[in-house]
Design a protein around this nucleic acid. Structure first.
Lengths: 194, 194
DNA sequence: CGAAAATTTGACATGACTCAACTGGAGTGG
DNA sequence: CCACTCCAGTTGAGTCATGTCAAATTTTCG
């Protein structure tokens, strides 16, 4: 099992001893998924939190009308799963599905508290990671209120140029909260301007 | 300085020894603000994270067009400030202002890491609190995409009946991402239905 | 090459916004 | 206790951003 990607990610936030690094291995597992496979299905209990080593996934919610809404994407070095479901072991609000063949390092719910107990520094690590995610989510809420679809698209393109290359346009439209048709019109408008 | 409100809030999440509880006192301060006073101003560096003992505040962002957007409200037993600004000591994206006379327990940035060092359990505490806030923010993003303004208003009313009583309607409209006029129309429509 | 998936385009519909006028308290002061 | 102002809320007419639906086109990939 190759945990290098995870360990170097961790090292950005906390200093781990080599025993601690070793011990992480006991709590996690390495797993490969194929394109279109699901890691989490809405309504199920989310059993594992996943760190993406390779690949690309989408997290989406299906509403009462049966419409899909992309909540976020995940690529290399991102976390994904349904955190709320994982933490509280309640039915998931979201689906998580591979857009490409994907490899993840995951830890199972039953290992979560034991791992935190064994390596308390990880409390800090996860606090920082979630903190950043929270701040970003808050900003996204404001952007969705105060910016037009076109402005949001331009920001997305700048912020995640890599993701734009890897995922189909209709998923990006959904992430931005607009229809695929309207995004198409925005793009053609941008072309005919400059 | 009366920290009971804060301590009983903490006890929901972690078990603290009486020494630890005592030690918290060294890191925090108690402060009163009057209605309309600001705790944070957009552009300034946010120096303190605040726990609301009594009162009500709004967090809002002013966009390029000069329009205000309510990000959230805070009442008793909630935290408020600009977390992103606090953590990274960068200019704040948000204003935080009292809607009522308010009393808070706050800890200064310079005490943040020392406090976490002195009482490592608080890493866990803050992880859990922020985790919950993050999960809630994510859900709000989805709601804003998949629900109409009327549906969002009904959910807000159910979720925060207390807040609806305490804050003027035009601020609630802004929180919901709609204009005050449109919220007024929604309400009259709800009246004429049942 | 052919079928399925993704994207584009156009006509029309609508939810929500803007602006401006009006209503109705809640002070305030004379 | 009336007159005045100020602020929040309401209402209506017209507009705009974005959505819906359906058809045409392009791309992807077995």
């Amino acid at each position: 099992m190759n945990l290098q990607a995870l360990l170097s990610y961790f090292r950005q936030y906390v200093v781990l001893s080599s025993e601690e690094e070793k011990s992480i291995e006991e709590f996690v597992s390495y797993r490969k998924y194929l394109k279109n496979q699901y890691l989490v299905q809405q309504g199920d209990i989310c059993k594992s939190e996943c760190f993406v080593v390779k690949g690309c996934l989408k997290t989406f919610h299906i509403d009462q009308e049966g419409q899909e809404h992309i909540v976020r994407f995940a690529v290399e070095n991102w976390w994904t799963a349904d955190l709320g479901s994982f933490i509280h072991q309640k039915p998931a609000d979201y689906n998580v599905q591979c857009i490409e063949d994907t490899e993840v390092i995951q830890f199972h719910y039953s290992n979560y508290e034991p791992m935190l107990k064994a390596i308390p520094k990880l409390e800090r690590l996860f606090r920082i990671i979630i903190q950043n995610a929270y701040v970003a989510a808050d900003k996204r809420i404001i952007r969705n209120f105060s910016l037009t679809a076109k402005e949001r698209y331009l920001i997305f393109r700048e912020q995640y140029p890599d993701i734009e290359q890897r995922v189909p346009q209709y998923l990006i439209a959904s992430y931005l909260g607009i229809t695929k048709e309207f995004l198409s019109k925005i793009k053609s408008q941008l072309l005919h301007e400059g």
